[in-house]
Design a protein around this nucleic acid. Structure first.
Length: 203
DNA sequence: ACCGGGATGTTCT
DNA sequence: GAACATCCCGGTG
């Protein structure tokens, strides 16, 4: 394992300053990076950008509230919210402090800790069903609202965003999923690894 | 394969 | 009281 300089398995967290940019620039570059919670690891294959005050689809669109407080803080922290009263979904906070932008992590390719993931995803029959959606992803890694505000660059609560892997040269792109009409459903702010079997939907 | 509906609770009107 | 950045199951072709 020495000398072979593979794609990059540094195990080092991303730099906070690298995230202090527009979420639409960060999002496609997050593809291929690794989200780790304890021993569980997955490679990011699908993301969506939510762009603070100018984005009607963003939780931050109507200003700060108790729920979205983490979004208004510094970049590099994890924003976790509850969707439909049932499912945790997680975002990487981007941009400068107070900008309230974030990138929703929508799907992962499981890498390590598959056994533990399967225990938290008992209905997943195939590996590709373990983390092919924003709620499934959080279930698989054991992410809950207790992780809201965790610093991904320092490893709060054992959760880290690792600077591994490389983004695809030509990411796929589409409109965002699950937004009501008039809430930014026409904005092409979803990016994905083309052809990856772990996407929440094909294209 | 595609489609419809129920679960469930927090947030905001 | 409505809306919601979802998931799962059971129907029908």
């Amino acid at each position: 394992m020495r000398g072979t300089r593979a794609a990059a398995a540094t195990g080092r967290p991303v730099d906070r300053e690298w995230l202090r940019r527009d979420a639409r620039d960060v999002a496609p570059e997050l593809l291929g990076k690794v989200l780790a919670v304890g021993e569980r690891r997955g490679r990011i294959v699908e993301v969506e950008a939510y762009v603070g005050a100018i984005d009607p689809g963003s939780h931050a669109f109507r200003g700060p509230t108790p729920r979205n407080a983490t979004m208004f803080g510094p970049p590099g922290h994890l924003y976790v919210y509850l969707s439909y009263g049932l499912h945790a979904c997680c975002n990487v906070v981007c941009g400068d402090d107070g900008q309230a932008s974030a990138v929703l992590l929508r799907a992962l390719a499981p890498m390590e800790g598959l056994e533990a993931m399967a225990l938290d995803r008992p209905r997943a029959r195939r590996p590709r069903d373990i983390a092919n959606g924003p709620g499934k992803l959080c279930q698989a890694l054991g992410i809950t609202r207790a992780h809201d505000g965790a610093d991904l660059t320092t490893g709060d609560l054992g959760i880290r965003l690792l600077d591994d892997g490389t983004p695809p040269p030509a990411p796929g792109r589409s409109t965002r999923i699950g937004l009501g009409v008039g809430r930014g459903d026409d904005l092409p702010w979803r990016w994905f690894v083309p052809g990856d079997p772990n996407l929440s939907r094909p294209g």
